[in-house]
Amino acid sequence: MSAETWQITWFTLGVATLSTLAILPLGVALAWLLARRNWRGKSVVETLVALPLVIPPVATGLILLKLLGRRGLVGGWLERTFGWEIVFTWRGVVVATAVMSFPLLVRTARVAFEGVNPRLEQVARTLGAGPWRVFVTITLPLAARGLVAGAMLAFARALGEFGATIMVAGYIPGQTATLSLSIYHLVQLGHDSEALGLLAISVTLAFGAVWLSEFFLRRRAA
């Protein structure tokens, strides 16, 4: 493999890892709230979370572009406060993949939490455990396999993200070029054989991530 191919592969893996880690705390917390609590506006939040699954990825990308651009509501604030530029940088790739994979994490994690028998949590409370101890010692370990499966699925989604990423980060070699963006670019240039090489890497990585996700889900069901 060429140095450039290595760079693209490592960049893609790094971005997918970062975006998965970034959405994990909020995704797990939200999944727990959806599984275990009834609150006002729950159905609206549920729908909002599912939206990136069904609206075209480029449309999600456009929304993010408008929000995160220098003149955007969030982007302007981030640049003024932290000096962070999001659009057309690696950060933009992370944000786009994070938003696109968030629904998969939340949905899988929610099912994992719903699979924990609430009676166990109730009994733990009668044994003197406060809500946080119940969550850490009972709910989390019993839902762990499902949570890992959800994280792997989100990681797999992040590996292959294209539509939102191209809108937010564009194709900049060495800076925002992921596997999927590079495949598209190479095909556009007519370099099909190089594109096929990246395709093989992409399929292998995605296969590994989805297989691991299924592995954890199967073990949970067993």
Partner: peptide
């Protein structure tokens, strides 16, 4: 429940 000291066996 955690501060009641009331045991519960379902």
């Amino acid at each position: 429940a955690e501060r009641r000291a009331v045991g519960y066996v379902p």
